[in-house]
Structure formats: C-alpha cells, structure tokens
C-alpha cells in the first residue's frame, strides 16, 4: 500500500464506482435516516420535476471520502468541504478523484471531485488530511 505522506503534489488517488443502483440509494436512505422520497421513489421524483430519482448528495460525498480510508494509520480528514454541483441518476458511473495540491507541515491538501460518465463534476471540493 502507498503511504499518503509519500505522494507528491499533482499526484492523484482515483477509483471508479459500479453504476448507481436503486438498492444503493435505498441502503443509504436507511443508514442515514434521509427518507426524502425523491431519492428512492420514481413517482415522487417526477412530482418534484425530476426525470427520475437522484442520489443523495451525501451518498456521493460519503463515497468520495473512502479514497482516504486506507491511510487511517497515518492521519485523518480534518477538513472536508463539498459543493453539490450536479445531480446523480440511476446507472450513472462515477469516478472519484483526489489530487494533491499542497503539502505544508502536517497538512496535505487535495482537490476532490466525483465526475460522471459525461465528464461532468457532480460534487467538488477540498480535503485536508492531517498527519499524526
């Protein structure tokens, strides 16, 4: 396993998810307690003017942070800022990306985003990883 501390500015962590499925969103609704029906029930999404159900923004944000989970012995996410910039629909294929942009003392800063199959950002922000 790579050590996060050894990554250089400009290098990236990346992972591609399985296509988004309804069961993913049902599970997230249950585990987070966010039962807003636009995330799980087609008719409710349509009533809200959407073409279909959309993923919880927090589901995508939660997924994105897992790029850093393997490095838990080295440090932790001390700051995590996200702007929700696009909707995620069923069958979308998301790629998670984190690019190191700064390394100052104990703080590693990354630009992070999730990008759909049309190369559009759906969430975008920054993570600061604080080394122990």
């Amino acid at each position: 396993m790579t050590v996060l501390n050894k990554i250089n500015i400009g290098e990236t962590l990346e992972a591609t998810l399985q296509p988004v499925s309804r069961i993913d969103l049902i599970k997230y609704a249950g585990s987070s307690g966010d039962f807003n029906p636009i995330h799980t029930i087609d008719e409710e999404a349509k009533k809200a003017g959407l073409p279909g159900i959309i993923a919880h923004g927090m589901w995508t944000m939660g997924n994105l942070a897992k790029l850093f989970t393997p490095y838990y012995e080295e440090g932790f996410i001390s700051d995590y800022n996200i702007r929700f910039s696009g909707m995620v629909f069923l069958e979308d294929v998301l790629t998670l990306k984190a690019q190191m942009v700064d390394k100052t003392g104990q703080l590693l800063t990354f630009d992070v985003s999730a990008i759909n199959q049309k190369q559009k950002d759906v969430v975008k922000g920054k993570i600061t990883f604080e080394l122990y």
Binding site: D24, K27, G30, S31, S32, W59, G62, N63, A65, K66
Partner: peptide
C-alpha cells in the same frame, strides 16, 4: 450499516 451503504 453506514460504512457499507457508502461502499466503504
């Protein structure tokens, strides 16, 4: 459950 639901 939460960790599993975000694939982590």
């Amino acid at each position: 459950r939460f960790a599993e639901s975000i694939g982590d």
